[in-house]
Design a protein around this nucleic acid. Sequence first.
DNA 1: TTGTATGCGTTATCAC
DNA 2: GTGATAACGCATACAA
Lengths: 317, 317
Amino acid sequence: MNSVTLKKIAELSGVSIRTVSRALKNQPGVKPELCSRILELAAHLGYTPNVAARNLRLQRSSCVGIISSFSENHITMRKVNDLQKQLEEHGFFSLLGILPPNGAELRIILQEWAGMVNTVVFLNWDGRLQPSEILQGLPQQFIFVDIREFDGYHSLIIERASGIREGVTQLLRRGRRRIARCGNITSRARGFDLALSEFTERRVEHFYIQTSDSSFKNGMEVGPVLLEKNIDAVFFDTDRMAYGFLKFCWQNNIRVPDAISVIGFDDDPWSGYACPALSTVAHPLIEVNRYIVQLALQAEPPVRMEFSTRFINRESV
Amino acid sequence: MNSVTLKKIAELSGVSIRTVSRALKNQPGVKPELCSRILELAAHLGYTPNVAARNLRLQRSSCVGIISSFSENHITMRKVNDLQKQLEEHGFFSLLGILPPNGAELRIILQEWAGMVNTVVFLNWDGRLQPSEILQGLPQQFIFVDIREFDGYHSLIIERASGIREGVTQLLRRGRRRIARCGNITSRARGFDLALSEFTERRVEHFYIQTSDSSFKNGMEVGPVLLEKNIDAVFFDTDRMAYGFLKFCWQNNIRVPDAISVIGFDDDPWSGYACPALSTVAHPLIEVNRYIVQLALQAEPPVRMEFSTRFINRESV
DNA sequence: TTGTATGCGTTATCAC
DNA sequence: GTGATAACGCATACAA
């Protein structure tokens, strides 16, 4: 910890703390000569204000808490990183916490953050937990992103159907009629159903192939099933899973998109590098994060906001 | 900010602050009955200790600062994420800062962190900057990771040659004799030269093809050059760049590894998904981060540590 | 078993 | 122009 304080500077320069403070803050009312002498001394000693003391005094903080599950998924990491970046551009530092396995531990983290953090963003949540029980009485404002709507908290909802709808439009243009969706992510299921329900009149058939997970391996394994059902276009719940299917196709000499169109979800940066480059539905993370920064800047009564996804067309459709 | 303080609890329960403090900390010397009454009240009010005040009082902090350039590269994000995770497992929170374009701004960030952070980890550094000038007088201990050795600061060095050496051994076993290295990252150049210098007696020829960057696009563009020189094995400075070359091969019906062996660098998680799965040299990020946590836990005189990379063999060799 | 009093480093009010 | 001084919330040495 730093040992150069206002007091020390004051002693060394023979003035009072108040004067040093004024000089360092460029507040009026210090003789220019004295001011510059103090500034010089402070610089020489390497004075750095103590944020803990300042926060304590001002009853505020320059930190935003982010709770996320630890994941090596690129998209998860990118959400966190971009949020940190945007927060920093607005003068906030971010404190990162990993979502613990139960509510009690979560509460402990949040309590630890009291006095340090005014706003906490949840990028993940355990569906079995009731926020009202855990967050009860905690001093921060809470923002739930892409989780669910909870009464009394900010919720930023990602609306899946928009991007999927654009994707389906592209598929129809390409003459695809037997469209499948593979994976196990429920939030994406709803979007898919919603989007496809609008296209019934054109005699589109759709299928849902549920897998145990939405991993690369699942994507590979689901290959034979898709062939057997004569699927001509497939949405995967994650890009990762789509890569698995692309691998299956590569191994079995199935041409994508000639034989089958493939669409992923997440727009992780590798999707552009895949062979063929993967078309995907992109998460509006930048817009969402921009909104979070606004909420951090000024607390508001709980807000509900909806954000749309969008379709990114590459080579696989 | 929370408004429930020790004082408030003390007033409401009709005892002194000291007693409340003792009760909440389970320190001996409080009548059990009183103790439980206080605990109950505190829980009811949702008391949360104020970390700013506590840190101020104890002259310590539970945060570690991480300075990194903002990058969407997976490996960069993974380094940060894993470090945050490991720190959290040891009771630290991480404050993330983005490396600003000049020393003055960097100094401002670090000053802001005084009183909040004892340890700052640099995952990036601007080579033109002199740490001694910028960090002069700042109260924290500094750790430079994979950057360079600077006098008076911790430096954790990643030694490239080890992993590359293993890779070359594999290539020789496969009968490769014309080995190239592509990219523009100087730290990797040294490792490559070092590793290859050991194999001269077997009549290995090696080539260095310098590119403007080490991106996907560079990897695609370098394809014709490699063909022209009859290269039979190639190291790329990044996995990303290797993906570019794999794309080139895919487009031109060049079989990997039959026609040419390909090795990347970084082990980003997609390397396993590529067609064919990419062999790569892996960064010892977990080991490095474990060591950082140790340094954060107890400050030591400046330390120099070296970490080895390792070769991960998949389908592309 | 409980309470008083002090200080951590800032900021800001008020008085000189 | 400048200087005492009082908070902010917590922890603890020292009294009672």
